[in-house]
Amino acid sequence: MTRNPPDLPEEPFDEAGGAHVGDRQFAITLARGLDVLRAFSAEAPVLGNKEISQRTGLPKATVSRLTYTLTSLGFLHFLPEAGKYGKYVLGRAVLSMAHPLLANIKLRQAARTPMRELADAVGGAVSLGVRDGLNMVYVHTAKRVESAGWISDIGKTFALGRSCMGDAFLAALPQGTRESLLSDIRTSMPDEWEATASRIERSREQVARLGFCVHEGLVRPSVHVVAAPIHLPDQGEPYVFNCAITAEASSHARLFDDIGPRLAELVAQMKERLANAEAEPPQPLPDAWARRH
């Protein structure tokens, strides 16, 4: 049975939805429910109402009603013995909703084998990511067995302004779109902006010249990352491939002369494969099948 803390008096909150002030089509309650789901992460998989309130900025009474509703619908699962009032984890309904999205990313389906081959060849982890707000999210990862302890997996997120994948994504955007996102990144990390802006510009220049960019130990000193964007017709924003490899297995020269070019070749291979797939006419049905139907 779902158990919630006693109802609390509603606290003042911006009913207009912040950036959506005046937007009569914007469903505030739905947005708040999604904010509750976004509060969970691999680093914080179990949260109580108080913690969710702190992470989202939503009033505690609002969070209590939202978690009750989300639990009733299967999007959260309640752990009654966790903490004074119980805590929540994401429910399996979240996973069910993710599958149609992943299954319909054509690039993800086409790149599985080449990503595995590249991961085996370089001894690292090769991932495909997309943007979600100010984060990049992995939608597929291939890695060697011996690197299974690395934090590279579907759903893993990295800040757009603090990752090689994010830099590659920004480099592939039209200038106007890029400037708009850079403004948002600057607002989200003002103390780090000067150094971040310089690094993002260096990465943009690398992508323009080489087709990929390189970060040596940015997120963790022990891991180097190479990333290459790929833009497909009629697919909206770019996708990004990256390759993460231990620092001890990747010299500066190897990153630029071996792994980077291999990743750029993967991009070219995927563009050609998907273009050919789109150009192929539908195959005729076998005569035997046609006669039976």
Rank of each mutant, 00 (worst) to 15 (best):
Y85F: 07
A42Y: 10
T62E: 12
T29R: 09
K50P: 00
I28S: 02
L70D: 11
E81I: 02
A82I: 04
A31H: 08
S41K: 06
R38I: 00
A82N: 08
L90S: 01
A82M: 06
V89I: 11
R38H: 13
P45K: 09
L66V: 04
E43K: 08
S96A: 15
A93H: 12
A42L: 09
H77T: 14
F26N: 00
F26L: 04
I52V: 15
T67C: 14
R38N: 13
L30Y: 08
A93R: 15
F78H: 15
R24L: 09
T29K: 00
K84T: 15
A98G: 08
G86P: 10
V89L: 01
K50C: 04
P100G: 11
I52L: 13
A61M: 07
R65A: 12
T69I: 15
Q54H: 09
R38F: 11
S53L: 01
G48T: 04
A42K: 10
A39L: 03
H77D: 13
G86I: 03
R38L: 13
S53V: 00
H99S: 12
L34C: 07
S53C: 04
A61P: 03
Y88S: 02
F75Q: 09
G57E: 02
P80I: 01
S72P: 01
Y88M: 00
F78L: 07
A31F: 07
L70V: 05
G33T: 03
E81Y: 09
Q54T: 06
F26G: 00
A31M: 00
V46D: 11
L58I: 06
G57C: 08
D35S: 14
R65Q: 12
N49G: 03
L73F: 14
I52F: 12
T62F: 01
E51C: 00
L79F: 04
P59L: 05
L58E: 05
Y68D: 13
L101K: 08
S72Q: 15
R65G: 09
R24S: 05
L37W: 11
T67E: 11
V89E: 11
T29M: 00
P80A: 05
